[in-house]
Write a protein that binds this DNA or RNA. Structure first.
Lengths: 255, 255
DNA sequence: ACCAAATACCGTGAGGCATACGGAGTTAGG
DNA sequence: CCTAACTCCGTATGCCTCACGGTATTTGGT
């Protein structure tokens, strides 16, 4: 990663505050970087990241493959730009209520976003690019718990905790949905095919607890797993834990 | 996914209890499925999942590309087999102490495993294959909190919570390490290159909290982020939350 | 008014990937 | 001892990213 590359990428990310550095000579570009990014998002939304290709982005715009590279230096950069772009979509509503309510909003925003753009979960960021929308959001997330009584260090850790857990839950949920949809096989049908084979394979007495828990969970969920419910369960536990942490120290002036 | 495929894959996963169904005619295979799986794990350990290819597995064994397909039906199946294989490595030590200690061991085992085999985090399971080692581990994980006072439903949710959070934390940590190593650029150097550009781009007063928190975190961590520490912080909060849940109900006979 | 520099767009090709298919050689059951 | 069944592999198809160089277009400078 060269210094110039850093400049190039950051310039693209912050293009709105920086302006697009159009040279004046030569033909104008038929599209804008934003249109390329939006086309990329559309492709990724529809087909997922593994099937996301530069050719499809080009096709969608009516360009030929290699022209995309005049807008964006590489596939990875384009994906980085797409990530920051979608982070700007939902807006950052003003915080209301106590930190518990606020953190719920923070988590729910991420959860929804992962469901709107499941490919976000498949992005492997080499080094996280610091873009305007990501920065704004981080500031907004921190603001949700500012003054609640956490130390500065803890504030970062709390946001990390919520983000990490939400991402992992969403990952499980999205994976389950995608599989059900694209394979055309529901959980129930999948079990119908697998269960008899597994019953033959798995020594019955080797899994007493899994058997008990799995049966109860299956009946309760009407599915192998209810990710939404697990998400809420986890979030509630985490909030209780944070409560405990705050309760163990002198209260801040105003909650 | 046809019925026969299910059989084929499950047969491979449970090959130890089932025996490898060798037809008797024709030349014997030069290797075993296990050797292919181990070769695959070696490749993935060294190069990561994106660079993992059937050709490299073949090369490592001294076979030609297409011969691999006589052992294993496809790349995805091979990866599934690799996943269950590594889950058998660390063994399942007998549980000791209270549920807090036990869950710490459960989480730590996963954390370590994700660091030993970072490609586990990149695996996109379509439908999770139920293999022997995965099943054993799930049973062992449930056993860690059996009798602690959780309902059966909660037991599943607790293990999901710990697993999800651990995976997400490990993902962040592994990503940070990988980037630092393979780009040859340390966090400090990365900041040295990016900071001046960002200072020019980011309106200073737009990020008051991020600025304050980021500075404190940076000094405390000696890095942009200390994933290990965030992991422990999150785990402690989660345990406190679970404690709260258990405290709010009649105690079980024996803790 | 005209030329040359700068730029967008695109054709081609190199090198990578998974995997379908069919052929050649090998082994053992009948 | 023949032939079915099996392993191994060469080849081909159809994807992918991206480097490179060619051509057409636009405009600043003269």
């Amino acid at each position: 990663m060269e210094n110039g590359d850093v400049d190039r990428t950051l310039s693209l990310l912050w293009r709105r505050t920086l302006g697009v550095p159009q040279g004046s000579r030569g033909p104008k570009q038929r599209f804008s970087v934003d249109e390329v990014i939006r086309a990329g998002i559309a492709v990724a939304d529809e087909e997922g990241l593994p099937a996301f290709s530069m050719r499809k982005v080009a096709d969608r715009l009516g360009l030929k493959l290699m022209s995309i590279y005049t807008y964006v230096p590489s596939r990875d950069e384009l994906i980085g730009l797409m990530v920051d772009e979608v982070m700007g979509d939902p807006g950052l509503p003003p915080h209301e209520g106590g930190w518990r309510e606020r953190l719920t909003v923070v988590a729910r925003q991420m959860w929804d976003e992962f469901h709107r753009h499941p490919w976000l979960l498949q992005v492997e960021q080499a080094r996280p690019w610091i873009g305007p929308n990501g920065s704004d959001r981080y500031e907004w997330q921190l603001a949700a718990i500012d003054g609640a009584g956490f130390t500065d260090l803890e504030m970062d850790q709390v946001i990390t905790l919520i983000s990490d857990f939400t991402a992992a839950s969403a990952r499980a949920d999205v994976a389950a949905r995608r599989t059900a949809e694209q394979s055309g096989i529901s959980d129930a049908e999948w079990w119908a095919v697998n269960a008899p084979v597994l019953e033959r394979l798995m020594p019955l007495d080797a899994y007493p607890i899994s058997g008990r828990v799995g049966t109860v969970a299956g009946e309760e969920y009407n599915a192998v797993r209810d990710s939404e419910r697990s998400f809420r369960f986890g979030l509630d536990r985490i909030f209780d834990g944070l409560d405990q942490l705050l309760g163990s120290r002198p209260q801040p002036p105003q909650a």
